[in-house]
Design a protein around this nucleic acid. Structure first.
Lengths: 249, 249
DNA sequence: CGTGGCCTTGAAGTAAATCAACACCAGTGG
DNA sequence: CCACTGGTGTTGATTTACTTCAAGGCCACG
């Protein structure tokens, strides 16, 4: 399952490449047996027999590099994406041109669920890290759902995850001082694994509703305090205790 | 369908009465035929035959007065609530005791959907106006869902509405200056009907992530400018054009 | 070696929080 | 009836945190 990586999508922002770098069409059975191992599969409740039966359907297995766009706000809804690995930001644009990142999707998450309701894509999805996804065409999901009701519970679980994530952003990342918000964001980013890949100051700002300068200053402050220390290129480890204190928990 | 109204839930906040003022157990068929008229029914896709069949199940038809609590954060999930009329705020508490209102639910909305996944209630739901709801026990919904897959699409629509609402709050009500946020909130509140019932300054603050003082000052400013004018007790009408300008649309 | 993209940092200006006082009203009890 | 009370809203003065504007540093890349 190796994948070659080209240079990051270059050029001015907004003109990112919407193209897979490493991709292979695969059948549902394969894709899901992989996901099953990860314990967050959409089809975990399907029997082997069903997996085989639906295995004929073509599921695209795509890769995106940082900066590449999975889909844009307003795109006609064609497919749901399951994140297998990596990280994607979902952003929404306001009429005045400003934007806000409303969610991060990491491994195990489903995005663009709204297309199941015949809607257009409500966000723009952009990879923040090298990301692998399963692209599940709407028709495939709807057909499977029609045949095996067991899928519903899983779908609801993904909807629920979206709502919970959104609520978390409202309560944790949009409340309190800039310092507090950055601390809470770092806690979230670092909650799985020893270290994590730092986001751009601009993205941090767009997530927390603060300016990039304030984001920069706050991150710099945490670095000086030793609360945040570099452990590689763009990778950092945090002092969870200190951050928890700052975040008011 | 008359309902008596007692005095508002008195006493200190947080000790609100969790009790119905006007309630009548009814059967599913009745409840839904009412909701069907409103065009936002959970069961709209069920046939008459099915409605009658499930009609045996007892659905509670409850009423709440402003300040009364429908359920608390952490309560064991027992039922989903369909708002028939009125307005409910969903609030989430942070460990440090502060709170944030993450959503408003008005007529046609479903709240506490998370109990369908065997979870506890994730918010505290408090009526802001005299509110009528249908209380649908989890078992009832799950059983109906198991028998008629048509319910799924409706449920997904409600999940979707929750996510969309949350995203709106992030982009519209948690971004920009206090003035801008208040303007956008007033636009949302006034989007159906000529006038609307004003919220307390404290609630406005908890929705927008600003202090009650700032909320008060901004509302007062809009009143002085004539952008917001009183048309009754706690009821106001707005100059939508002016607000749209301020909100940057 | 230059160029452009991010990040950092400083100085100045400003919006909002904070602290504090008071007005207003409905309800309560003298 | 009036005086009291508590809750809510308003307003002012002050302080603080964040934005804004501006400059320069660092690094990957051509």
């Amino acid at each position: 399952m190796g994948h070659e990586q080209g240079p990051a999508a270059g050029g001015r922002k907004g003109a990112a490449v919407d193209q897979a770098r490493f991709d292979g069409a695969t059948d549902l059975g394969q894709a899901c047996r992989f996901c099953l191992r990860r314990g967050a599969a959409l089809f975990r409740d399907l029997t082997d027999e069903e997996l085989t039966r639906f295995g004929q359907m073509q599921i695209a297995d795509l890769g995106f590099l940082p900066g590449e766009v999975l889909y844009r706000q307003g795109d006609p809804g064609q497919a749901v994406y399951m994140i297998r690995d990596g990280m994607v930001k979902l952003e929404q644009f306001l009429p005045d041109g400003s934007q806000r990142i409303v969610r991060l999707a990491r491994g195990g998450a489903a995005i663009a669920l709204e297309v199941l309701l015949d809607g257009d894509c409500e966000h723009q999805a952009v990879a923040l890290q090298p990301t692998r996804v399963c692209r599940l065409p709407r028709e495939v999901l709807l057909r499977i759902e029609g045949e095996t009701p067991r899928l519903h519970r899983q779908l609801m679980a993904f909807w629920h995850a979206s709502v919970s994530e959104a609520d978390t952003w409202l309560t944790l990342l949009s409340t309190g001082s800039a310092r507090t918000r950055v601390a809470r964001l770092l806690l979230l980013l670092s909650e799985e694994g020893e270290s994590f890949e730092m986001l751009s100051r601009e993205d941090i700002g767009a997530m927390l509703g603060i300016t990039t300068e304030t984001a920069s200053r706050t991150v710099a402050e945490f670095r000086r305090a030793g609360t945040l220390r570099p452990v590689g290129v763009r990778r950092f480890a945090v002092d969870r205790g200190a951050l928890a204190g700052i975040s008011g928990t």
